[in-house]
Simulated scan of single mutants.
Amino acid sequence: MGLIRRLRVTQRAMERAMLGVSLRDQIRNEEIRRRTRVTDIAQRVAKLKWQWAGHIARRTDLRWGLKVLGWRPRTGKRSVGRPLTKWTDDIRRVAGSRSRKAAQDRVLWNSLQKTYVQQWTSSARECHKVQFF
């Protein structure tokens, strides 16, 4: 999520540069986005991740992409405390435990894409809104 925040900051800086607007002009980000009509980087990243996951899940050959997604550590254990999320955890949250089977049906997979992008970008926003006391 930190990477997404940094990408969004960079994208906003580029959009301001495209319009010739300074931070001192105090124009809201929504107004800048409306003027440039550029897609939010978090939505684009989420959409590409979903498409790539479907592409890998539909593969029948056993190349490295599918092996990496199904990889389990030798010990079978994750670190103590709250385990780090795996790349496929958020995909399984939307598509279910049978995500590879769901990916075979392209119509179903594409219909789930919108839900995934919406969920992924909203969780990125929530991480950004954390308040410190």
Rank of each mutant, 00 (worst) to 15 (best):
G2D: 13
G2L: 14
L3E: 08
I4Q: 06
R5H: 05
R6T: 06
L7S: 03
L7F: 12
L7Q: 04
R8C: 08
R8Q: 12
T10D: 12
Q11W: 04
R12G: 05
R12Q: 09
R12C: 06
M14E: 11
M14R: 14
M18N: 07
M18C: 08
G20F: 07
G20M: 05
S22V: 11
S22R: 15
D25R: 04
D25I: 00
D25H: 08
N29P: 13
E30P: 02
E31D: 15
E31W: 14
R35V: 04
T36N: 01
T36S: 00
R37F: 08
V38Y: 07
V38H: 08
T39V: 15
T39H: 11
D40N: 14
D40L: 10
D40F: 13
I41H: 09
I41T: 10
A42K: 03
V45L: 14
A46H: 01
Q51E: 14
W52Y: 13
A53D: 00
A53G: 06
G54V: 01
G54T: 03
H55F: 08
I56L: 15
A57E: 02
R59E: 14
R59K: 15
T60C: 09
L62R: 09
G65T: 15
L66D: 04
L69A: 09
L69R: 05
G70A: 12
W71E: 06
R74H: 05
K77N: 11
V80Y: 10
R82F: 11
R82V: 14
W87D: 04
T88E: 05
I91A: 00
R92H: 04
R92F: 03
R93C: 10
A95D: 02
G96M: 07
S97N: 14
S97K: 13
R98D: 05
K101Y: 11
A103Y: 02
R106L: 06
V107D: 03
L108Q: 10
W109D: 01
N110T: 14
Q113T: 07
T115I: 15
V117F: 03
V117C: 02
Q118E: 13
Q118T: 13
Q118D: 14
Q119V: 10
T121K: 08
T121W: 07
R125F: 11
E126V: 09
E126Y: 09
H128S: 12
V130P: 03
Q131V: 12
Q131L: 12
F132I: 08
F132P: 02
